[in-house]
Write a protein that binds this DNA or RNA. Structure first.
Length: 482
RNA sequence: GGCGCGUUCGUCUAGCGGCCUAGGACGCCGCCCUCUCAAGGCGGAGACCACGGGUUCAAAUCCCGUACGCGCCA
């Protein structure tokens, strides 16, 4: 038995940033390929001449790289220029579409259509009036050669249309949805080549999926209705069709299609907000896919091993930012501090904290509090500031009632032989009982005095890390005796 | 409008004819731990399985309609 090698692809149009939905599609293709020891291909579908941009290409590549969804073939790989399937930009493959189009034309399976936009609009209008599906009426199907020469001579530009069968049904075998049937009579003679000589989406994608030997087309739900047309193309070209799997869409928290008004939709925005890429990737894997063991957190290898099309959901999934945030914290908490700092480097640099001595120790103090990488500088900066950013609550705590306490304590602690957590705790607790103060009367003002905040790490650990000099100085300052 | 797809707690989901008076996770609430905030532990509220019909001894699970949502034709 011959088993075909699994080859999947992600084929974005570079007409904007990579959004969450696209990233999820790419991810599933990648996971599926990895699961089967196959190859994941990235192909850029840049046939939209007006909307495609180089910036978009860059953004898409950067997004995938950042997310850790690594394509095996595609732009910027070893095969990019010379591999058997290269190139990976559709605009560099125009010749192959034109060759195939000519073959279809010669075989009578496609025909030139000279209808103007006005004629098509009129067709559509009439159809709507008569409550028929708006569909090209095939008037150029049987254009006499003479008439055609006339139009050509008059300088009329033609598009190329594919001749759909008039009857019968086309069945789309879908790995997620089962067999879906479509009436051919309802499918229209769609355009495969534009007048400019550039192919349309449905045509180019069929040619390429065949040329690149794609075994499984895993893509968004919105393409399900295009699939019967594509299947007819495969048949007309004598190609073996790949297997299809149509993924449900991703909706916003309110059930409407995910869009900018729901917050960030671009992968790079999540990067810039401080999300940890593996966490986002893990979260995305869970949107529309699940295992039977109700596991939530996956190592990369586990994802490869456990991912399956069977676990893919038919119904759309809502993107839940709250769960993503939880998951991000979950990942950050497990990270060794040094790795955490490396990951947070851009944010620490922006705050001017990167490379500061003691950073690792302070960062460790707040260990379990980071939800985002961008939280790291925010929770750690008190250590490095000469002038603390006082919160209102903290200011109140070091108010009149506590000044003498803080001053006395400063004096006490300056004599402490060893400035480490244990002795500090003993000393401060001793101080409390000596002065008949409740611990809370001392602990809270001290925290406020040394950090400017009311929330923070365990007090004694924090004092140890801050060190004698800073602690005494800050206590005195707060006490107003300095 | 036609065709197609979908519908289990607020959200992601488990479930594939009896184990379901529907399980887990996020979020929410409470308690415990505790020097604060987190983290962690324990517990709680939250789903008449969209609705209506069948099939069956038995249905969230199978079948048929309806509604609603979404996609494609644009």
């Amino acid at each position: 038995m011959t088993t075909t090698k699994v080859r999947t692809r992600f084929a974005p149009s570079p007409t904007g940033y990579l959004h969450i939905g696209g990233a999820r599609t790419a991810l599933f293709n990648w996971l599926f390929a990895r699961h089967h020891g196959g190859t994941f291909v990235l192909r850029i579908e840049d046939t939209d001449e007006v909307r495609s941009t180089h910036d978009s290409v860059d953004a898409i590549l950067e997004s995938l790289r950042w997310l850790g969804v690594a394509w095996d073939e595609g732009p910027e790989t070893l095969e990019a220029d010379r591999g058997p399937y290269a190139p990976y930009f559709q605009m560099k493959r125009l010749q192959s579409y034109r060759d195939r189009a000519r073959k279809l034309l010669e075989a009578g399976k496609a025909y030139p259509c000279y209808c103007t936009k006005e004629e098509l609009d009129e067709m559509r209008r009439l159809a709507q009036l008569e409550k028929r599906p708006p569909r090209y009426d095939g008037r150029c199907r049987r254009l006499a050669d003479e008439k055609r020469r006339e139009l050509e001579a008059a300088g009329k530009k033609a598009v190329l249309r594919f001749r759909m069968p008039d009857e019968g049904t086309t069945m789309v075998p879908d790995l997620i949805r089962g067999n879906v049937h479509f009436e051919n009579a309802l499918l229209q003679d769609f355009v495969i080549m534009k007048a400019s000589g550039v192919p349309t989406y449905n045509f180019a994608c069929v040619i390429d999926d065949h040329a690149m030997e794609i075994s499984h087309v895993i893509r968004g739900d919105e393409h399900l209705s295009n699939t019967p047309s594509q299947l007819q193309l495969y048949a007309a070209l004598g190609f073996k069709a790949p297997l299809f799997a149509h993924l449900s869409m991703i909706l916003g928290p309110d059930g409407a299609k995910l869009s900018k008004r729901h917050g960030a939709t671009s992968v790079l925005e999540y990067r810039d907000q401080g999300y940890y890429p593996k966490a986002l990737r893990n979260y995305l894997a869970l949107l529309g896919w699940a295992t039977t063991e109700s596991q939530e957190l996956f190592e990369e290898e586990e994802l490869f091993r456990k991912f399956s099309i069977e676990g893919c959901q038919k119904s759309p999934a809502s993107f839940d930012p709250a769960k993503l945030l939880w998951m991000d914290g979950e990942y950050l908490r497990k990270l060794p501090v040094q790795e955490l700092l490396d990951a947070a480097k851009p944010f620490l640099e922006k705050a001017g904290l990167w490379g500061k001595p003691g950073l690792e120790k302070v960062a460790t103090l707040e260990r379990e509090k980071y939800k985002l990488l961008s939280d790291v500088p925010k929770l750690v900066d008190f250590f490095f500031k000469d002038e603390l950013d006082w919160t209102e609550k903290a200011k109140k705590l070091v108010g009149d009632g506590s000044r003498t306490i803080l001053g006395d304590l400063a004096a006490e602690l300056s004599k402490l032989p060893s400035f480490t957590a244990k002795p500090l705790e003993e000393a401060i607790r001793g101080f409390c009982s000596a002065k008949s103060l409740k611990t809370s009367q001392v602990f809270h003002p001290v925290r406020a005095a040394v950090s400017g905040r009311t929330e923070g790490p365990s007090l004694f650990d924090m004092l140890e890390v801050l060190g004698r000099e800073k602690v005494i100085e800050r206590l005195r300052k707060a006490a107003g005796s300095n």
